[in-house]
């Protein structure tokens, strides 16, 4: 069953006075439980596609459906709710809230969901234990290494059991050992929790880990390889 469906998605950006056509009609479908890499050179449109799938931006034309929810029929508020409950995000620059500790950063999503304080704390600690940060609950982002911060970001993305995690170049700022550890961890979560992961990347390691590789070039799907097939 498809969790993400994109049909003829077009997106044009205005950069100064120039129109940049980031996506020129992308059609693809990603099944639940997938571990998918959107690969391509810088400027190919992979991050734009990831943002559109996450409902962070609107396409100029075309349709996107996530977990049965057609975006073009949804208000901003309902999109926010969908992101809160169904989609987790991992960013290249980690994007943790600097004034909150690791455990508080993970808790914050659950706070927005209205989860009670006790349960929040318990689940946040459990997920931090899972990503190997059991002795760093109370450290703020500035007191964590890049790899540790990205682990907190992963914990935050999956703590509320989303159906889909979108990761934008998650390993770009990490050394190879840390990056591999993180990828292994996400692959494990994909296997055990059946969470769908979609990466935008030009990191070969991520492409190697992915079970499906979609190459984007000049705003179009240039190649779509399902390694399991």
């Amino acid at each position: 069953m498809a969790i993400v469906e994109c049909t003829d998605v077009v997106k044009t950006y205005q950069q100064g006075k120039v129109d940049v056509r980031a996506l020129r009609g992308v059609t693809l479908s990603i099944d639940t439980g997938g571990f998918v890499a959107l690969a391509g050179p810088s400027g190919s449109g992979k991050t734009t596609l990831l943002n559109l799938i996450g409902g962070l931006d609107e396409p100029d034309s075309g349709h996107i459906t996530v977990d049965g929810n057609p975006f073009d029929e949804m208000s901003q508020s309902r999109l926010a709710e969908l992101r809160l409950n169904k989609i987790g995000f991992i960013f290249q620059a980690y994007n943790l809230i600097p004034v909150l500790s690791a455990v508080e950063n993970v808790e914050y999503v659950m706070l927005l969901q209205g989860v009670g304080a006790g349960e929040r704390r318990e689940r946040a600690r459990a997920i931090l234990d899972e990503v190997g940060l059991s002795d760093m609950y109370n450290r703020r982002p500035a007191e964590l290494s890049g790899g540790q911060q990205q682990r907190v970001a992963v914990a935050r993305a999956i703590v509320s059991n989303p159906a889909l995690v979108l990761a934008d170049e998650p390993t770009a700022n990490l050394d190879s050992k840390t990056g591999n550890g993180l990828l292994e961890m996400m692959a494990e979560m994909n296997r055990t929790k059946k969470v769908t992961f979609i990466f935008s990347t030009h990191d070969q390691r991520v492409m190697d880990y992915a079970r499906r590789l979609i190459r984007i070039q000049d705003g179009r799907v240039a190649e779509d390889v399902d390694k399991a097939a």
């Binding site: 996450g54 926010a80 709710e81 809160l84 989609i87 995000f89 999503v109 935050r156």
Partner: peptide
Amino acid sequence: REFGLLKALGMK
């Protein structure tokens, strides 16, 4: 950036 993040996380 933080407000963008919060919105991405689903903050209204």
